[in-house]
């Protein structure tokens, strides 16, 4: 018997949240988008992680290619080599992408990006338009590449036999060691003290991760810089930084991620982070003399695409002037 707890979900509420698309296309909104529009959106929103041609960048996923590699030593699993349903592409782009700005694309934009992915994989021509009407006419190459879990039939008969307890095999020897590959992060070794004095001295190879993280004394210059900043503003900026840290890093050991690391950004020429692949638009702005002053940063943070059209920072911007000032103060606290 129902308890009568909860309230009826309103149609607008269901529409807002029930966005799942089924393999037969149920759930798709009306509309469409073409390859060319998709390419523009791709360059703007997706290429920073997935490459201009969906070939992938850094450790981020490659989206197309790899057809026929599923039996290789290193299979390349992409939308055209592995994904069974186009509905999954549409649904995932719509609900989860772009990374750090999910649910900001319109339905037509999702159609266009999906069309561009199909085009990049060579599955459609450049004049193709994907719509809710022709959606289910597209079959992905690996649609038949999946079968339902058969472990109960294939594995259980083998793995439910009475286990052997003695003389089960020939004496063993080492055939592979993790230390030969040497990709394990450093970790401390746990050792104890024993009353019989049997404990060997800790081996010189023992590693303690924390040992390498000794903070260096702050240079005097930095201390002066810090003193001139309003601590409350910096603290507010640190809170606002949450929305930036998906892509950007600051502080000791900051590295380029989705976006460049931002140590020392205030006062520097745009495009200053070594090794970061900036957009052509940002490089052009840098060559044109753009320097990240408090003023230019404020304009950029308010509307990234307004100051530098077609740059790759897919970020909606910060509307609040106070919040921008706080963010800039926070960035200055890392700019000595």
């Amino acid at each position: 018997e129902p308890l009568g707890i909860g309230r009826a979900a309103l149609p607008e509420e269901v529409a807002a949240w029930d966005v799942a698309i089924m393999p037969d296309g149920r759930g798709l909104p009306q509309g469409g988008g073409n390859v060319l529009d998709g390419e523009d959106l791709w360059i703007e929103q997706c290429a920073v992680c997935h490459g201009d041609f969906a070939e992938g960048a850094g450790n981020w996923p490659q989206i197309v290619g790899g057809l026929g590699t599923l039996m290789d030593d290193r299979p390349v699993k992409t939308t055209d080599s592995y994904w069974p349903h186009l509905s999954t592409v549409w649904d995932y782009v719509n609900r989860s992408m772009p990374f750090g700005a999910a649910q900001t694309l319109t339905g037509d934009e999702v159609y266009a990006i999906t069309a561009y992915i199909l085009y990049s994989g060579g599955l459609v021509d450049d004049d193709f338009e994907l719509t809710h009407e022709n959606f289910t006419s597209i079959t992905l190459p690996n649609a038949d590449g999946f079968f339902v879990d058969d472990r109960d039939d294939v594995e259980l008969p083998l793995f439910t036999q009475e286990p052997c307890m003695s003389d089960c095999r020939a004496p063993v020897s080492i055939s592979a060691r993790a230390t030969d590959i040497d990709v394990t992060p450093e970790f401390p070794i746990i050792r104890f003290t024993y009353s019989d004095g049997s404990a060997p001295a800790p081996a010189p190879t023992d590693t303690v991760e924390e040992a390498s993280a000794e903070p260096e004394a702050a240079p005097a210059e930095e201390a002066v810089q810090m003193a001139s900043l309003d601590p409350a503003l910096v603290a507010a900026g640190e809170a606002a930084w949450r929305q930036c840290r998906t892509c950007h890093q600051l502080g000791d050991g900051a590295r380029n991620g989705t976006g460049p690391q931002l140590n020392g950004v205030v006062g520097q020429a745009a495009g200053h982070a070594d090794g970061f692949r900036y957009s052509p638009a940002l490089i052009e702005a840098s060559e044109g003399g753009l320097v990240w002053t408090e003023e230019t940063l404020d304009a950029f943070l308010e509307n990234p695409a307004g100051l530098i059209p077609r740059n790759r920072m897919s970020f909606r911007g910060v509307r609040s002037e106070d919040e921008r000032a706080a963010l800039i103060a926070y960035l200055m606290s890392y700019s000595n």
């Binding site: 590449g145 079968f147 339902v148 879990d149 058969d150 472990r151």
Partner: peptide, 11 residues
Amino acid sequence: LMPDGRARKWT
């Protein structure tokens, strides 16, 4: 992904 290039789903 299994050796024959097909994949188990719903595992």
